[in-house]
Design a protein around this nucleic acid. Sequence first.
DNA 1: TCCAGTTGGTAATACGATTTACCAAATCTT
DNA 2: AAGATTTGGTAAATCGTATTACCAACTGGA
Lengths: 332, 332
Amino acid sequence: MATLADIAKAAGVSSAVVSRVINKDPTLRVGKETRERVLEAITALDYSPNIAAKSLRSARSGLIGILLNDITNPVYTEILRGAQAAAVRNGKALLVFDSAMGEESAQRMATLIAGGALDGLIIQASGEVSDSVIARAAARKVPTVLLQADLELDAHMISLPDEDAARIATRHLIENGHRRIACIATAQGMRFTERRLHGWRSALAAVGLDEAGLIFAPSEIDGGEAALAQLTAQAPDATAIMCFNVLSAIGALRGLNRAGRRVPEDVSLIAIHDVPFADVLSTPLTTVAMPLHEMGSYALDVLSREQAVAGETVVDKAPKLVRRGSVAPASG
Amino acid sequence: MATLADIAKAAGVSSAVVSRVINKDPTLRVGKETRERVLEAITALDYSPNIAAKSLRSARSGLIGILLNDITNPVYTEILRGAQAAAVRNGKALLVFDSAMGEESAQRMATLIAGGALDGLIIQASGEVSDSVIARAAARKVPTVLLQADLELDAHMISLPDEDAARIATRHLIENGHRRIACIATAQGMRFTERRLHGWRSALAAVGLDEAGLIFAPSEIDGGEAALAQLTAQAPDATAIMCFNVLSAIGALRGLNRAGRRVPEDVSLIAIHDVPFADVLSTPLTTVAMPLHEMGSYALDVLSREQAVAGETVVDKAPKLVRRGSVAPASG
DNA sequence: TCCAGTTGGTAATACGATTTACCAAATCTT
DNA sequence: AAGATTTGGTAAATCGTATTACCAACTGGA
């Protein structure tokens, strides 16, 4: 493989010139024709700079690590897509980790962080984030952005318009005449959960309603189904359920189907987050789509700025109600 | 950050010893207590090796690039998961690219390859793979494995038991009494498609049946729905459809629903590839699950071996029929 | 006592790019 | 013509690790 020195020799200049031409050093004064000779040599020898050497010298790798809760969850892959798109724009590449993969995976990530291989970190993990990752990131002072995550880390926090989303969903149920509205929430205790609960409660309070029931469940299909069983016992009179996650909504839907209760005729269902297959479920699911793509994209943009990344941002694209078939006017 | 030299100074040895201790150089003869002093200094100073320097010196980065067709497609994320798991085992990390992200993304990948940043490459992309990526990979002789891909590249090819899967699916329909069996295929012209077609046809031929109809469609929900419309015209008498991709099956299901044809009462449906939400569709979908996780995992193992990677492998885990509700005995 | 072999290391260089400080030759100024 | 600038570059020192070649001191054997 051709190196800088090879190009220098071929063009009859020093390697300093070649480097400075490539990196467009504005302080470099060089003759028109010399520059052209350099450029020609580069294409002639098919030169491309060695990434490891660049990284070593410049102390930046162009690599961003992203830690997701679960790559197979369609809600989160949308974040990844957004981050990918922005990575390309900013000349970066993404190292993807999955917090569901266990401690060994976290150790790999920690090693990379400690070794200076990562210019930045994006963490989307409501639950488990290995201490080793956090400790390394803090020690190295790696610029970090947290997506809907509550972590003791000096980082930029990006959140979604959670309160709005919950309010939009709840209002939609209210506008359909529902009075007894229950909630299947996720991630108990986390800030984004509190924001959603607040949106739900304030929408109810605005029209003088009480909560009909509240259950916390993991953001998975099975979790939703289990939550539905509990909810049926806790709030048998609920005519509508709002779910904080589309997967738990799908679980609830399955539970309702199995219990012989029809959606939306007997119970209306609405979920936060949209997925491509929502319209092909046993009942097409009405959802409130969140700007997940934008969140991923924005995270990378924050990391690509030169300045410090501390601060807090809410993705400013509004949640969007996607009407399908799972919400119907309350009977009676 | 502490460097090798810092450790050496702290332990009162040369940095060569430290390096050789860390890397367990078997030719190093060192006193028990000296070794301990080194190890203590490492923990005391919280040393971890600089990845860029390691990469530069050793010409290996520990990074593997993986190019997927579409990260948001649940069929493919399963491959990613498998690769992740194996990456952790082998002390590697994954750089994820998406061929749906366009040429700019491919250029980033090509730059990384050309710059020697990638120790290996996994390509799962039935369709578009940028020439720049292929050219760079070939020029750099980066060890590459192709997943179900037909590419002019000196690489190891890993494929799935496609013929078996198609045969299992077809047989299942036959055993349910179907005589007119149509097929919605994907990726026309590719080898894995041919293998599946062969499985389908041989299963039919074994019991003296003809194909009832064949349409090619993209592996997406919309593609499946469009294909169904064509198929209805081409083979109105088909009582069962086998789909080469679960997403096109979902599209077909939607098309059937909209046309007022019931699944499985009027038409039976079976798909290759399983997804977690298959059982919560308007009709729970019977599928043939493929060893995708294993394919991803195996790909990484191949790249992690020291030897050359040329060759060809079929993932040896058998496809598994997952009976749900979309196949019923043929009426009549 | 002298030589061979072992023990326990070290010195020095290379990997490939970046960047600072410096400088010879050419041109301009007065 | 002498000094001041400008033009067009270069030399050399990093960045942090891996590795090869070498060697001093000690031990053992005869």
